[in-house]
Design a protein around this nucleic acid. Structure first.
Length: 806
RNA sequence: GCGAGAGUGGCGGAAUUGGUAGACGCACUGGCCUUAGGAGCCAGCGGCCGCAAGGCCGUAGGGGUUCAAGUCCCCUCUCUCGCACCA
């Protein structure tokens, strides 16, 4: 069989697309805008990762499909090139990011991305490291500052000793740095923060309205971590009052002790002299433990009695006050009421230190709160006047109301979300546009003076001083106050790379404007993004930051929509031979090798065929070759060069059925990102055409357009061979007619007692009365009926007959 | 621990509302073609029994609902992901 040469075909169409500007869209004139966004990569020196290609191709298929449907599709690409991923790599390899990054970008674009057959509008490329871009990143910072959403404050922050910078909470994974995996330390430092908590409720509530992958929404919901409950005031016997936060005020009668975090400031005041030495010792160990061994989840609970007692406000009970490190200072009030009968942690602690357990919510029969805490629903008991009430509803609100009336409780909501720490003590990022003046204090750099240019410095290595390397640059550090003209110095921290990526999609349609971050009219026309495809690892990083920034810009009146993405789809992860790819295993897939041997079309096709796009897949060598051979068979079946095509429209019912049902399936499969099954349907069509030697022009024209989103180069070549216009992507998506998909005859499944016994080819639309004699006569059925009586008959129209016999 | 998702041939993976389990592909086996092939074509390919026709079993394990269960319900096990002494 003759084979096509992907090198020739793909080079030809790459050139034509570029020359004919086929991938560009007229941003002003577009009538049916569709903004198809994919998460931009950071241009690593290793080159494009197969995971990137997988993500981009799946997104590109949507873009090309929408284009064939008649949309004006804008599919831009850019490079997220500031930040520690680039900088750390440069440090490791002894290069300078300022020279390394442009080379990497060039290679990504020219050698890799352009060869993948992506429908990218390169006119609108974004590079976050050029002054024309980061000038507006700094503008974002200033806009947030002016709206009271950026502030500098001293507090405990996460310090990565490997990267020598602070990190945001979101960038600490299991106590480790997201980038270098060093164990992160807590440090008291003064840092810049963005007030993400200002919109925590909006960000949470709006999740309900978003057309996003559920798991992504869930991750954000958990991260925001809203807990509704109440603050309850306890009184230390002969001492001060203090507050505990609880989500279960209904269990207040079961609070048999209270626990303070070891860091709680009140401990010094209330601890009895006798208990002090033990308390001090415990605080010392607690501090060291929390630094080193916090990941150990099964760590046994520890604590120490303070010698003091408090009064339970609801019943006046005398309860001991303990200090224990299972209570965190950073959440709620740093103190809790312990209800061992109804909280697992309190239960474990009470058992260990022999503290009383009082059940106040009924548990299911056969369970005992002496064995295990019961956190489920039930009715109140041992709770005085509240006995019998449904605990979590009526009981809860009535107990809170009682205490609130005495000024001892108030409804309260806590969140796990923290403000976004955005300062980085590093070099490779956009300088924070702030100046400190002895006279004027903190002064934002005026907009007209932007950008604050990142100076080229030879030695950009962090020095462990806790300051950015920019701090060592006198000509950068020393400046004049923009307000009074007096001597001043610049902020030397740069901002978190996630600020660069929080707004890049506003920039794409407006890259040609030098005087504004994004053009109001184009933004109105193209945003929010219609479809965003990316990895779920950014559920609480990029996706949360960019949602937050969008809200900030919305409230500042800069844009007129509160959410940046109409639809977000999280693609799956590719593994190799059932396991993760890693350098140590030496099983990293190099996309270039496959593309140069089999062509981008085959590579795209295999990546999409491997598994469900939303779930990822398992990459096996050999798969790409199989796709090439499928494309060869495709060419043989539909190309006029492979043999004459009949110009007649397809007359046979069977052929029409295949044609139309394939169009229907492929269309529906693309809509639901089920690319593997769409490709399978195309294979079936080719198998059918080949087997029956059916060669019709109309079928070829349809099949080529169905293939186009997946294998664009070859589709163009075949479209041209079929004598059509300049590009298949200016044609249209094939349509189907249901009437051809309905077949005149269907294969009935005949079951006896639910077991398959025969299959009968029958005309569609028969009634049960018409079918019954046919079924009873069929030899496959008759033998099962001998000596039996039919007691029940099930008819599923055009599908199945089930006879229940005895 | 809490939450979410998943478990189907030798392998990757398919199966609208419960209605033919294993589509499509890989690997493998046999045959054809070829000087040769990491090429192409034809056929087979869940397990067990059988020459065959056919039969029995089979979607992690156990129970249930139903004429009918991969699909719905309950229990158990395993894996992946997210959060994690968050009160």
């Amino acid at each position: 069989m003759e084979k096509y040469d992907p090198r020739v075909v793909e080079a030809k169409w790459r050139e034509r697309w570029e020359k004919g500007r086929v991938n560009e869209v007229d941003l002003e004139k577009a009538q049916r805008p569709f903004y198809n966004l994919m998460m931009f990569p950071y241009p690593s020196a290793e080159g494009l990762h197969v995971g990137n290609v997988f993500a981009f191709v799946g997104s590109d298929i949507q873009g090309r499909y929408r284009r064939l449907l008649g949309f004006d599709v804008f599919e831009p690409m850019g490079f997220d090139a500031f930040g520690m991923h680039s900088e750390n790599f440069a440090l490791k390899t002894g290069r300078h990011p300022a020279t390394m990054v442009p080379k990497n970008i060039e290679r990504f674009r020219e050698e890799q991305l352009k060869k993948m057959g992506l429908m990218l509008a390169w006119d609108c490329q974004v590079d976050t490291t050029i002054p024309e871009y980061y000038r507006w990143t700094q503008w974002m910072f200033l806009t947030l500052y002016k709206n009271g959403l950026a502030y500098k404050a001293k507090g405990p922050v996460n310090w990565c000793p490997g990267c020598q910078t602070v990190l945001a909470k979101e960038q600490v994974i299991d106590e480790k740095c997201e980038r270098c995996s060093s164990v992160v330390e807590k440090r008291e430092m003064e840092q810049w923060f963005f007030k993400t908590t200002a919109y925590q409720d909006e960000l949470l509530d709006a999740l309900e309205t978003l057309d996003w992958s559920e798991r992504t929404k869930l991750a954000q919901k958990q991260w925001i971590g809203k807990s509704v409950g109440a603050d309850v005031i306890f009184q230390v016997e002969g001492g001060p009052k203090f507050t505990v936060f609880t989500t279960r005020p209904d269990t207040l009668f079961g609070a048999t002790y209270v626990v303070f975090s070891p860091e709680h400031p009140l401990l010094d005041e209330i601890a009895t002299p006798a208990a002090r030495p033990a308390l001090e010792a415990y605080r010392q160990t607690a501090q060291s433990v929390s630094e080193t061994d916090r990941q150990d989840e099964k760590r046994e609970k520890t604590g120490v009695f303070t010698g003091a007692y408090a009064t339970n406000p609801v019943n006046g009970a005398r309860v001991p006050i303990w200090a224990a490190d299972y209570v965190l200072m950073g959440y709620g009030s740093g103190a809790i009421m312990a209800v061992p009968a109804h909280d697992g942690r309190d239960f474990a602690f009470a058992k260990k230190y022999n503290l009383p357990i009082v059940q106040v919510v009924s548990s299911p029969p056969g369970t005992s709160v002496e064995d295990e805490a019961w956190a489920g629903d039930g009715r109140l008991m041992n709770s005085g006047e509240f006995d019998g009430l449904e605990a979590k509803t009526d009981g809860l609100s009535k107990i809170v109301a009682l205490l609130a009336g005495r000024g001892l409780a108030e409804p309260r909501t806590h969140y796990r979300l923290r403000d976004w720490c955005v300062s980085r003590q590093r070099y490779w990022g956009p300088p924070i546009p702030i100046v400190y003046c002895d006279k004027c204090g903190t002064v934002p750099v005026p907009e007209k003076d932007l950008p604050v240019t990142l100076p080229f410095i030879e030695d950009f290595k962090p020095d462990g001083s806790g300051f950015s390397p920019l701090h060592r640059q006198k000509d950068f550090y020393e400046t004049q106050c923009p307000r009074c003209g007096g001597p001043a110095h610049r902020e030397t921290d740069v901002s978190d790379n996630f600020l660069c990526s929080a707004w890049y999609f506003y920039r794409y349609p407006s890259t040609r404007f030098d005087d504004r971050p994004f053009d109001a009219e184009l933004t109105r026309k193209w945003l929010p993004v219609d479809l965003y495809v990316g990895g779920n690892e950014h559920a609480v990083l990029h996706l949360l930051y960019s949602r937050w920034l969008c809200r900030a810009l919305y409230h500042a009146g800069a844009i007129d929509f509160p959410e940046p993405y109409r639809k977000f789809v999280a693609h799956g992860i590719i593994v190799k031979d059932g396991g993760k790819m890693s350098k140590s295993k030496g099983n990293i897939i190099n996309p270039d090798e496959y593309v140069s041997e089999f062509g981008a079309d085959s590579f795209r096709l295999y990546l999409m065929f491997m598994g469900a796009y939303l779930e990822g897949g398992d990459f096996r060598d050999g798969g790409v070759r199989a796709m090439k051979s499928f494309l060869d068979r495709f060419v043989a079946a539909v190309s006029p060069k492979a043999g004459p095509l009949s110009p007649e429209p397809p007359a046979g019912a069977e052929t029409l059925y295949w044609l139309h049902s394939t169009v229907k399936s492929v269309t529906q499969d693309i809509e639901r990102f089920s690319y593997n099954t769409a490709i399978a349907r195309l294979m079936e069509l080719v198998n059918y055409l080949t087997k029956h030697k059916i060669r019709l022009r109309e079928i070829s024209a349809t099949a080529v357009r169905l293939l186009a989103p997946f294998a664009p180069h070859l589709a163009e070549e075949l479209w041209e061979e079929l004598g059509n216009g300049e590009t298949v992507f200016k044609s249209s998506w094939p349509t189907y007619e249901e009437e051809y998909i309905r077949r005149p005859q269907v294969e009935y499944v005949v079951q006896i007692n639910g077991k398959l016994r025969d299959k009968l080819l029958l005309a569609v639309g028969l009634t049960p009365e018409e079918i019954e004699p046919l079924v009873l006569q069929s030899p496959g059925v008759a033998k099962w009926l001998e000596g039996k009586t039919v007691v029940k008959k099930i008819f599923v129209p055009d599908k199945l007959v089930n006879l229940v016999v005895k």
